[in-house]
Simulated assay, not measured.
Amino acid sequence: MAQEQLETYVVESPEQAMALLNPLRAEILSRLMEPASAAEVARGINEIPQRVNYHLKALEKVGLVRRVGSRQVRNLVEVLYLAIARTYVLSEGLNWAGNTVQQMKDQGSLSHLVHTAERIKRDALLLMERSDQQEEIPSATLDTRIQLASAEQRSAFVEEYVQLVNQLVEKYQTAAEGQETYQVVLAVYPKEGGEEG
């Protein structure tokens, strides 16, 4: 079947970097830690298969995903894709000015924030429909503010937050069949008019 998936891949080409900074493509890549078809990925992110297929082809073209097989589903043959790596690092060799790379990352993060907010809204509306039928839908929301003195402090905060969440996930993760899967999202962005308490 496929070549082995890399743990980390250093992104050396601008085309790959631009693909990674597209929030939907980054989301699709994150769903390809195991081989999956466009239809499976589309179901996982509440997108239409045609749109996912378009972005998969673009990711394949720049070498960030590869075809690893196919399978027959009724009268269709589904192509299975796999991300070439689990994590990606932008190479210094891209020769982009540091502020350009940071700006691209920031803009990519903002686009991802909009995409994530839309996905949460879609998911919440579907869950509200289920709750209208007297089905109990357990959920939780955390909304807080923090004052961070610098970009370095913001990065350190996010990094530590991710580590703590990963520890919690490992502690409570279950492999039991039929268990509910929960989505966990963190967004960090400047509060508009944010100098106020």
Rank of each mutant, 00 (worst) to 15 (best):
residue 7 E to I: 00
residue 9 Y to F: 07
residue 10 V to L: 15
residue 10 V to P: 01
residue 11 V to E: 07
residue 12 E to D: 06
residue 13 S to F: 01
residue 14 P to Y: 10
residue 15 E to T: 02
residue 15 E to H: 04
residue 17 A to V: 14
residue 17 A to L: 13
residue 17 A to W: 13
residue 18 M to Q: 15
residue 18 M to E: 14
residue 21 L to Q: 07
residue 21 L to C: 09
residue 22 N to Y: 11
residue 22 N to L: 00
residue 22 N to A: 04
residue 23 P to I: 00
residue 24 L to G: 03
residue 26 A to D: 11
residue 28 I to K: 06
residue 30 S to D: 09
residue 31 R to Q: 12
residue 31 R to E: 01
residue 31 R to M: 00
residue 33 M to K: 14
residue 33 M to P: 11
residue 33 M to W: 15
residue 34 E to F: 08
residue 34 E to N: 05
residue 35 P to S: 04
residue 36 A to Y: 01
residue 40 E to A: 05
residue 40 E to G: 00
residue 40 E to L: 10
residue 41 V to C: 12
residue 42 A to F: 02
residue 46 N to H: 13
residue 46 N to R: 15
residue 46 N to G: 12
residue 51 R to Y: 06
residue 52 V to D: 11
residue 52 V to F: 04
residue 53 N to E: 12
residue 54 Y to E: 15
residue 55 H to Y: 14
residue 55 H to A: 07
residue 55 H to D: 07
residue 55 H to T: 04
residue 60 E to N: 14
residue 63 G to W: 12
residue 64 L to W: 02
residue 68 V to Q: 13
residue 68 V to P: 06
residue 69 G to M: 04
residue 70 S to I: 03
residue 72 Q to E: 07
residue 73 V to T: 14
residue 74 R to C: 05
residue 75 N to K: 15
residue 76 L to G: 09
residue 77 V to D: 12
residue 80 L to G: 09
residue 81 Y to C: 01
residue 83 A to C: 02
residue 83 A to W: 05
residue 87 T to S: 10
residue 88 Y to F: 14
residue 89 V to H: 15
residue 90 L to W: 08
residue 90 L to D: 00
residue 91 S to Q: 07
residue 91 S to L: 01
residue 92 E to V: 07
residue 93 G to N: 11
residue 93 G to E: 10
residue 97 A to N: 06
residue 97 A to T: 08
residue 97 A to I: 06
residue 98 G to A: 06
residue 98 G to Q: 12
residue 98 G to S: 08
residue 99 N to D: 03
residue 100 T to G: 04
residue 100 T to A: 13
residue 101 V to Y: 02
residue 101 V to D: 02
residue 102 Q to F: 01
residue 102 Q to H: 01
residue 103 Q to M: 02
residue 103 Q to G: 08
residue 104 M to A: 11
residue 104 M to H: 08
residue 105 K to T: 04
residue 107 Q to D: 10
residue 109 S to P: 03
residue 110 L to S: 11
residue 110 L to H: 04
residue 111 S to K: 08
residue 112 H to S: 12
residue 112 H to L: 05
residue 112 H to T: 02
residue 114 V to H: 02
residue 115 H to Q: 05
